Simulated scan of single mutants.
Amino acid sequence: MNLAAFFTESGSYDAALELANKAKEKDKEAWSKHRYLGLTFLLTSNDLLKDEWALKDSKLFLELSRNQWLFEDYITNNWAQVAIVGNAPKELHLKKGILIDQYEKVVRFNGAITEYPYSIDYGKKTNILVINPRYFETPRNAKYDLDFIIISDGNLYSSKNISLKLHDLSQFSSRICFLPRKLDISLTKRISASPSSGLKFLSWLYSINGPISRARIFGFSLTDQSYGVATSYSSGQRVGLNTIHNWTNEKEYLESIIK
């Protein structure tokens, strides 16, 4: 099924369908056990799969695809009034919360804490949440009525059973999308490491509207963190990451896209 998903992404639909059918011959439950959004959409579009879960996944595939385009329009229309707030502790004790909340749109990442007293330095408003879908890395927090949720890890074609990890996010926003896969791949090559969610998102903004004003970026230091370790303002503790990031290369790239 993994190879069938690969062929779906490459546009080799006949090969994808052939491989999917062979997988089902070996295991009649293969299509439900190994769910890839793009492949499921292909199967339902060819009337080969009509189960309720498959129809829901196909609808999700279309929504995620559309929402990526909608987000790019949204960010362009609001570009002058977007603040991007990371989780690095560099803003502690600087009382920038009021300044951050004055922006029309505020972006935050993963389990960002906006309750008092952190709101004094980091603000309360959240319009866009960039989040890793893996539960063991990112506990959900109650941020409702979000304009967008951006999924920082995964994609429409090669992420197995990703729909099972996204089902709860619809309660927070009706507009959910992935970061562009091509951007993730090119950025990984550029910095020779797996990029952090923050850097991937900033790189996407740069690809849409060009250089980002330094004045609108908060909580991004990349200097108080070591290889494979991150520090959050809300915990004050260095935490080992499941994915190893190269903060030195990230900082160098970040400096090239901000002004």
Rank of each mutant, 00 (worst) to 15 (best):
R108Q: 02
R108N: 05
A112F: 09
A112M: 04
I113S: 08
T114S: 05
Y116E: 08
Y118H: 00
S119C: 04
I120N: 03
I120W: 00
I120A: 03
Y122R: 03
Y122I: 07
K124H: 06
K125M: 08
T126C: 11
L129K: 03
L129Y: 00
I131K: 03
I131M: 10
F136E: 13
F136Y: 14
T138V: 13
R140M: 11
R140T: 12
N141Q: 11
K143S: 04
Y144T: 12
D145N: 13
D147W: 03
D147G: 09
D147T: 06
I150P: 00
I151T: 05
S152G: 10
S152I: 01
Y157K: 10
Y157N: 13
Y157F: 12
S159C: 07
S159F: 09
K160S: 08
K160Q: 12
K160A: 09
K160M: 14
K160R: 09
N161V: 11
N161W: 08
N161Q: 11
I162N: 07
I162D: 06
S163H: 05
H167C: 13
H167Q: 15
D168A: 12
D168S: 14
L169F: 15
L169R: 12
L169T: 11
S170M: 12
F172C: 10
F172N: 13
S173G: 06
S173E: 13
C177G: 01
C177F: 07
F178V: 11
F178H: 08
P180L: 14
R181T: 15
R181F: 15
R181I: 15
L183T: 11
I185P: 07
I185E: 09
I185C: 06
K189Q: 10
R190W: 02
I191L: 10
I191H: 05
A193F: 12
A193T: 13
S194F: 12
S197H: 01
G198H: 06
G198V: 05
L199D: 00
F201G: 02
F201Q: 07
W204V: 09
